[in-house]
């Protein structure tokens, strides 16, 4: 699994939320190629191919990261900061999907460069609708810069020619 293409990296420790998210995405046929990590450290290991993911092909970059904020080991905001600070990962769209209603989380999220910030609705139907719209928006409508090795190479190619 880990050396296949991944569309969505879901960073979530709450099993209920995982199930709900998968359920909503599956109804829209968006759930294939989804990979789940359960804490901030694992998320970073996965993205940077370290620790248990040292054998993973680093050019296989997810199209979207769904990031919870309250995570074990390393917090969601710190994970976000690390992703946006590294040129290998900074262009991957990150969507914070959180139950936090803190204005400071919201502002800090955008300040650290999150691509969008979504507060999980408490109501189940609303949650499902939100995940569905979020999935369609980011995976279908949005143009993502990288998905696999070939695309990544084209990105580098493009950079060079745009600088010349």
């Amino acid at each position: 699994m880990t050396d296949r293409e991944v569309n969505i990296l879901l960073v979530e420790d709450n099993q209920d939320d995982i199930e709900l998210t998968l359920h909503a995405l599956r109804r829209e046929n968006l759930a294939n190629k989804i990979f789940i990590v359960r804490d901030g450290e694992e998320a970073l290991d996965f993205l940077f191919c370290t620790g248990p993911y040292a054998q993973r092909a680093p050019e296989l970059i997810p199209r979207l990261i769904l990031l919870d904020l309250k995570l074990p080991k390393i917090s969601g905001l710190e994970v976000l900061q690390r992703i946006k600070a590294d040129p290998r990962t900074q262009s991957i769209p990150v969507v914070i999907l959180t139950s936090s209603r803190e204005e400071s989380d919201l502002v800090n999220g955008y300040r650290l460069g999150v691509n969008s910030y979504i507060q999980k609705p408490v109501d189940f139907d609303q949650f499902r609708d939100t995940v569905k719209k979020m999935g369609l928006y980011w995976l279908v409508i949005n143009q993502y810069p990288i998905s696999n090795g070939d695309k990544k190479a084209e990105v580098r190619h493009g950079e060079r020619s745009s600088n010349s």
Partner: peptide, 8 residues
């Protein structure tokens, strides 16, 4: 035209 310009 993009075929092969991916450079990988």
């Amino acid at each position: 035209s993009r075929v092969g310009r991916n450079g990988s």
